[in-house]
Design a binder for these strands. Structure first.
Length: 561
RNA sequence: GCGCCCGUAGCUCAAUCGGAUAGAGCAUCGGCCUUCUAAGCCGAGGGUUACAGGUUCGAUUCCUGUCGGGCGUACCA
């Protein structure tokens, strides 16, 4: 619809140019937007205001001339000037309702597009280290990342979801020592308890499982406990497998799937880290100082140079990260989006600097990052500080168990990633029946119940007749609904390019609101058969769009509630 | 100190590329169930969009400064 209106305006602009009222080379950007107020018509354009200087006329006078030169069109009922020079468009009911045919024709694909042209894109998200179960912060990353994957696919991209984790290094060593201490019956406070050891209750369970000789199978590895509390290597390996399995269960409970699990250790085993380091040295971007090897990240916009190889010989975390990203590039992902928490912000400059220093013609701004701001958890009116080492924790799985999968996903995905998010557990629980997600799901369930009710009255829905008789839908709210439905493809496209799943959530809430309002004011199952068919057709179109939208968020669309 | 994100109703958050009278939910108040599910609808109250300037036809949005919060600024990840 907006495209059609845009081309009408374009025709008018062209006519005005040929009349000499605009410079021949004038190409004002034509914007058509949804009007917020029904009194302002269905759509509005600010074209007169943005081109008023080119035309050297007052905005309202100029707007009138643009209107006068609009070609006749069956979709346009009326165009009028309003406010400082807006042109408000009133479209015909038939034009609004035409979207319903497309919805039925495209079904689950309605709203999707092929702008991604089946190109490869990778989204890396969560990437939690296997040192504990997933907490609420990971949950935000999981929800946002998973929705981004769904959105990219809906926009025609060939999208790979990837989870990278550190299964070696200092923190894993710390984890192993913590578990080992528990295996030997020690706890925090004992002399031999490791400094900064992991204190969470799950460490004790993990130790118990190791000493039981349990076999652990996760999505990407398995290991059996050796029961030998002196075998630190076995404990480490077991602990990683155990916590990976825990995280798998968390992700499964959260309905999040990954195509690839990538182990940091494989970068060492395959020699990728060493290759990257040698390349950086060879390219002259490193120097030794104080027994450490430094990378000249300042040559790529960093505040100061960064240590690559510590005095103890180990690499700092970003070095394998550079090797990992080189690996991504070599796998053909010319587009990569890393979804991570804002606390990892500083890695961006370092990884990009390392990639540039490799001199392998990797684009400067590659890869892309989507950073979500921190989640604050409130419980009992107090902030719960999340600390894996101290063991204070709100796990994602607890949250799902208490609040529910759909509501948790909605909470975490329905807000802009750039805003900090306060998750009040008590509020989420007390309001679980009033959660916005149920408002949307309820709209879907109500639509389904219409068909059940119809069947109970021994009536049928004649879809063909419904589609043929859409012109009977003359109520304002029916047109409003149809206009809202027509916006969905645009929302999918915008949310996809902006990596902003919350736009979908907001849209669905609006659509559900329009439906609830309509439902309360107009009976769907009426005596008049053709009107009844038309109305059911409209509501089924709404249902389809609700389903498609909820699917992008990974939220279920229940038939009844 | 410097960098990034943010500051919108009592609370949690929206607001399309800079658009018209800044919107939802929760909470508060008042209506609507013998009629397709009241997890709903209709209505009311609640705002100097942190503050001060600037840019322009128009600023919650862009720019500068101030104040306040979060994160980072590790030879942790």
């Amino acid at each position: 619809m907006k495209q059609q209106l845009t081309s009408l305006i374009q025709a008018s602009i062209s006519a005005l140019i040929s009349q000499g009222k605009l410079p021949a080379d004038a190409t004002p950007k034509i914007m058509v937007e949804d009007s917020k107020d029904k009194a302002h018509g269905d759509y509005a354009s600010n074209i007169a205001m943005v081109s008023t200087k080119l035309a050297k006329q007052k905005p309202r006078d100029w707007a009138q001339q643009i209107i006068d030169n609009l070609p006749a069109s069956p979709i346009l009922k009326q165009a009028e000037i309003a406010g400082p020079g807006f042109i408000n468009f009133f479209v015909t009911e038939a034009a609004s309702l035409a979207i319903i045919d497309s919805i039925f024709a495209q079904g689950a694909k309605f709203g999707h597009n092929d702008s991604g042209k089946n190109q490869k894109v990778q989204v890396e998200f969560v990437s939690a280290n296997p040192t504990g179960p997933l907490h609420v912060g990971h949950g935000r990353g999981a929800a946002v990342g998973d929705c981004m994957v769904r959105l990219l696919k809906a926009n025609g991209w060939d999208c790979t979801a990837e989870f990278y984790y550190n299964d070696a290094g200092a923190q894993i060593n710390n984890l192993g020592l913590s578990v080992q201490a528990r295996c030997k019956g020690f706890g925090p406070g004992d002399d031999c308890w490791p400094e900064n050891g992991y204190q969470g209750h799950y460490i004790s369970e993990l130790a118990q499982s190791f000493m039981n000789g349990d076999k652990i199978v996760s999505a990407d590895q398995s290991f059996t406990g050796t029961k030998d509390s002196d075998d630190l290597q076995a404990i480490r390996h077991f602990a990683v497998a155990y916590l990976r399995r825990e995280q798998d269960l968390d992700l499964k409970a959260f309905a999040v799937d990954f195509d690839v699990y990538f182990l940091e250790s494989s970068l060492y085993e395959q020699g990728n880290v060493e290759e990257a380091v040698q390349a950086l040295i060879k390219n002259g971007y490193t120097y030794e100082d104080g027994g450490a090897l430094w990378l000249k990240t300042t040559e790529f916009g960093d505040d100061k140079d960064r240590v690559m190889r510590k005095t103890d010989g180990g690499y700092t975390y970003f070095v394998p990260d550079v090797a990992y990203h080189l690996n991504k590039w070599q796998r053909g992902f010319t587009r990569v989006i890393n979804e991570q928490g804002a606390d990892h912000h500083s890695t961006i400059t370092r990884v990009r600097a390392g990639l540039q220093a490799l001199q392998m013609d990797i684009p400067k701004g590659w890869p892309d990052y989507v950073l979500h701001q921190m989640v604050t958890v409130m419980k009992g009116g107090e902030e719960v500080k999340i600390s894996k080492r101290a063991g204070s924790y709100v796990t994602l799985r607890d949250l799902i168990d208490q609040v529910g999968l759909d509501a948790t996903r909605y909470f975490l995905a329905a807000r802009s990633v750039s805003s900090q998010l306060t998750f009040d557990i008590d509020l989420a629980l007390s309001q679980s029946n009033d959660n916005p997600v149920y408002y949307i799901q309820y709209a879907h369930a109500r639509i389904c119940s219409i068909l059940r009710k119809l069947a109970s009255q021994n009536l049928n829905w004649d879809q063909a007749q419904g589609l043929a008789k859409l012109d009977l839908l003359t109520a304002d709210q029916e047109k409003t609904l149809a206009n809202k439905l027509a916006r969905f493809p645009e929302i999918v496209a915008t949310a996809g390019t902006a990596n902003a799943p919350h736009l979908v959530a907001n849209y669905l809430h609006e659509l559900a609101g329009d439906f609830h309002s309509y439902y309360n004011n107009h009976k769907t199952i009426v005596e008049q058969a053709d009107l009844r068919d038309a109305r059911i057709t409209l509501t089924q179109a709404v249902r389809q769009v609700l389903v498609n939208g909820l699917d992008l968020l990974g939220i279920s669309a229940p038939q009844e509630m």
